[in-house]
Design a binder for these strands. Structure first.
Lengths: 213, 213
DNA sequence: TTAATTTTTGACTACTCAGTACAGAATGCC
DNA sequence: GGCATTCTGTACTGAGTAGTCAAAAATTAA
């Protein structure tokens, strides 16, 4: 564990143009972060080394640590960026649908498409959740926290205003939907082809929409 | 990559009692293998070092390599042992059921129980499949091969004698069932409690049994 | 007792990794 | 120009890793 501050100044070429003293950065923080997302996404948390990150962004050791902090700091930043983008794409579809079961079904359907687009990478968040367990034990971690958020969002979608009165069923569907998302992701990462994943996603969505009581 | 032979003689204390020359083994091959299963199961493929394996079995470096070969050899042995045991427990339940959809539902229900028993470890096979992708790329690997076998078994269960006439539906349900299994596993490894996992498994099984056409 | 055989043991090589340290380069400000 | 500031590049530390090797120990066979 390392307690250094991750150097949150973030001026660099892309930051606001009020010129400041000192040698200017040769790289763009945002572009570098994009590259980091890519590396973690394809290689997984455990599989990426700091060298991988540096090479991907074309940054040498010293600059890297000064600008981004340690590996875990970078991973947190990457997760934040990815989570925001993935949320924007996926969860909003769920919130737009009025009928609770249809809303969750829409989420699952969208995730199917999302996974298909990115085979065999699947979803960075869902994939990392398993890997972090091996690395850090089952304590709190940034992935787990976001998984809980995701779960809460699904549960909320099921129980808001016009929602399911039956709390037990809401919980069951929530757990099932979560399992479907994780399952579709695992399917994608197992190299299943587009057709199969989409079929499974559609089937899952249909199942949720026609949920048995 | 290392091409040494994994020393497949396997006499040791537990083998047949025709005494042979040479210093006797101090450890039992089967017990050691059990310990290896345990380590890979809790730490994952990437997360376990050869030292971990040696410590778990109380074997020193040289002896380890002489008896079991390299890390990948050990992993293959572990996978074989685990697969046989998991198959004996899980797939036979599926084969015992005549109705195709009920058979697959039975498998999913059983997996739910299995995952619950082993939280937060889940299933060694399903868990490793994602990790190996990061490590080895998407080429052939021993996990992938067994995943394909699993998929084929599910598809067979759906299409044997009295089975579904509709091939498209069979494929859809197969992919969905696989997604459910992987999803339940991921759920378990995300630290979800017993109740949630069982609920999700039951819901999934119900969905499969009442599969929409 | 001696030879043959096999395992044990610990040292050894060679490599990768995360993170630190520091001299020097490039800039803005005065 | 001179100075403070910030970034770059590289070398370094220390820990971990996989796998090899040869000498010592334990056993059976002759």
């Amino acid at each position: 564990m390392n307690e250094r501050a991750p150097a949150q100044d973030c001026r660099g070429p892309s930051a606001h143009r009020g010129k400041m003293a000192g040698r200017p950065k040769k790289f763009d923080m945002e572009q570098a972060l994009d590259a980091f997302v890519d590396v973690f996404w394809t290689k997984g948390y455990q599989g990426t080394s700091v060298d991988d990150l540096q090479n991907a962004a074309g940054i040498k050791r010293g600059s890297f640590y000064a600008a981004f902090g340690c590996k875990d700091d970078v991973f947190n930043s990457v997760l934040e960026k990815y989570w925001n983008e993935a949320t924007a794409l996926g969860l909003k579809q769920m919130d737009a649908e009025a009928d609770p079961l249809k809303a969750v079904a829409a989420l699952v359907r969208h995730v199917g498409i999302f996974m298909t687009k990115n085979t065999p990478r699947g979803c960075l968040l869902l994939t990392s959740s398993g890997a972090l367990l091996n690395e850090k034990g089952d304590g709190d971690n940034p992935v787990r926290a976001r998984m809980n958020t995701l779960e809460r969002r699904i549960h909320d979608a099921l129980t808001r205003e016009s929602g399911l009165g039956n709390e037990a069923k809401a919980r069951e569907v929530t757990a099932f939907a979560l399992a479907c998302l994780l399952g579709l992701n695992a399917l994608a990462r197992n190299g299943q082809d587009h057709g199969k994943i989409l079929a499974a996603a559609n089937h899952a969505a249909d199942c949720i929409e026609n949920s048995p009581d």
